[in-house]
Amino acid sequence: MNIFRLVGDLSHLLAIFVLLLKIWKSRSCAGVSGKSQILFALVFITRYLDLFTNFISVYNSLMKVIFIASTVATVYLMYIKFKATYDSNHDTFRIEFLVVPVGGLAFLVNHDFTPLEILWTFSIYLESVAILPQLFMISKTGEAETITSHYLFALGSYRALYLLNWIYRYYFEGYFDLIAVVAGCVQTILYCDFFYLYITKVMWGKKLSLPA
């Protein structure tokens, strides 16, 4: 474990709970893409199947449980409890256009052609594009609530911190995972546009609105 990965994981945890609290407190999921949340739930479920078969540490197992439970809870709040506030008219990204190609790629490019490893690879590839429905929804509505932009900032920062973690681990542990690094770069690059808007607008107390 290193500081980059720890802060990254905590940033990830913060993002998930900021979103969960926003929906729970405001009793509304306006401006939030349910499709992205479904993809994140899929990412965690396919990635953490080794939860019971492969004990790494208490921290690792605990975080896996928290990530799965909180993301499933978010999907539940969006599609069941506060379904009436779900903005399906703007959440129109065709996620099958993400899941199918990513599924195919996971079969073709992986470290080990075993079910668990292919699912882990699928999860890594899917996570890199899972935010697209959310970014697409913001581009359609033209703006995002400030709390939603904080959620996105924390979520985007987590994988950027993981990139630093991989640099650290490469030099100090000789650890390198090309699949995770490439997917992590794609994932972080997708946030660049948002990071620019967040730093130039939200940091100065303005609302995040995309140029019309």
Binding site: I56, N60, W120
Partner: peptide, 10 residues
Amino acid sequence: QENAQGHDEL
């Protein structure tokens, strides 16, 4: 790459 205990990152 896989180390003995599978993937150790979240």
